[in-house]
Amino acid sequence: MPRIRPIRTEAIVLRQRPLGDADRICVLFSPTRGRIEAVAKGVRKPLSKMSGHVEPLSRGQFGLAQGRSLYVVTDAQTLDPWPSLHDDVHRMTEALAMAELVDRSTDVDVSSGPLYQLLRHSLNALAETPSPPAIRWWFTLRFFDQQGYRPELEVCVRCRADVGPEANGYSAVDGGVVCPNCHGAGHGQRLSSPVFRLLRYMRRSSAESTAQVRVDAEASAELERHLRLSLEQALDGWLRSRGFAEDLARAETIGRSAVKSAAEREREEQHRAAI
């Protein structure tokens, strides 16, 4: 067998899964080679020199050798560990959504410089931002633009009429804003004026400026609905990692109701003891 030269590449670790007893398969995303699956050997043992350098949601420099079926990581050195994306579970969920989006939409051995730069920049911004969801919104909009799903925000996607900020709809199927007439005729979901303005603002602004915009709970829920419908169109499905975001949103309610049911159990026991 001819010896294949080992590869050196910078990459962002998108995800990992265990392999056998001690190894992990890492999904790396490289600017020049796209998605790469590589085995990191022995990283689940406590004295592995490599384990901390192949964690998901970090950026590093990797040496890879061609193994029998997958690449094998020969060395790894972290460049951006992004600790806040690991320590703060809310930042983590936003980062996972972005990583999953990239994981599910890129192919092996395809150069993907612009998407790599977008992900790297967004994870950097996410690590610092006071408003994690805004960075994901901004990232998602740029992701659509790059991947050929750019939502139309200037003219009605059905009749091409110019649109003002009021009374519009948003149609994920048609790929953008629907004018008041077409929306009145039953096309698209309601697009409120604040969300319409926010979408246009995000398109022309940086991630950092987007994170400065105050968005109330109602507008943020509406934007999430539109983005979700558009993502489902683009991905032909929904992001698994968003399930965890929903679990987190419910966490405190679950805790409080567990306290209540414990108190009820206690009352019942006292009641039974009294009889």
Binding site: D88, V89, E252, I254, V259
Partner: peptide, 14 residues
């Protein structure tokens, strides 16, 4: 970390 983050929110509320 995801597990600890989730549990600390639920148990913290308790």
């Amino acid at each position: 970390e995801a597990t600890a983050g989730y549990l600390s929110r639920v148990i913290g509320a308790m």
